[in-house]
Amino acid sequence: MNLLEEQVYTNGTNHQRSLVLAYVLWFFLGQLGIHRFYTGRVGSGIAQLLLGVIGYLTAWILIGWLFLFILWIWWFIDIFLIPGMCREPR
């Protein structure tokens, strides 16, 4: 057991997040950034939430597609970032 794990267990809390739950949240609610809230990335979760809401609300005037395109690229990249987000304590 390394020093970080020892500190987590001695405090009586285990901050490890479920990888499966993070991927489920990513798949179903990822365009709202919910998986980032779950992994402790509140700032980027708010950014994804805003991109999604603004993008979907303004898609009918075409500017929203730019927001959604950025969000979808970020959402795809998160596939590879989720394991690290779950391992890293926040």
Rank of each mutant, 00 (worst) to 15 (best):
R41P: 01
V42I: 15
L29V: 00
G45Q: 15
M85F: 14
L51A: 11
F28D: 05
L19C: 02
G30Q: 12
V20G: 08
R36F: 12
G55I: 05
E5V: 02
Y56C: 05
F80M: 06
A22Y: 02
I77A: 14
T39Q: 03
Y38G: 07
T58V: 04
L50K: 05
L81H: 07
I63R: 09
R17E: 11
Y56M: 07
W65C: 04
G84V: 08
W75H: 15
I46P: 06
L71W: 14
I73T: 09
F37G: 03
P83G: 06
I70M: 08
W72H: 14
L21E: 05
P89Y: 14
R36Y: 11
R41W: 03
S18L: 01
L21F: 04
I70R: 00
M1F: 03
A59N: 07
L68S: 01
W74K: 05
T10P: 00
G30D: 13
L51N: 12
I54D: 02
Q31M: 05
F37H: 03
E6M: 10
G55F: 02
Q31W: 04
F80Y: 12
V20I: 14
L29M: 08
I34E: 02
L81R: 15
I82Q: 08
Q16C: 05
L57K: 06
V24A: 08
F37R: 03
I82L: 13
L81I: 09
L62P: 05
T13F: 12
V8G: 07
G33L: 00
L50R: 01
M85C: 03
C86R: 06
A59K: 04
Q7E: 13
W26M: 01
G52R: 03
Q48A: 12
A59G: 06
G30L: 13
M85G: 01
G64I: 15
E88S: 14
Y38E: 05
Y9Q: 11
A47P: 00
C86S: 05
W74H: 08
W74Q: 10
W60H: 00
R90A: 14
S44I: 08
C86A: 13
G45D: 13
D78A: 11
P89N: 10
W75P: 08
L71H: 11
I70H: 03
T39E: 05
F69Q: 02
I54R: 06
W74Y: 09
H35T: 00
E6S: 09
R90T: 13
I73H: 04
S18P: 04
L50M: 13
Q31S: 10
G30W: 05
R87I: 02
E5P: 05
A47K: 08
L29T: 00
L21D: 00
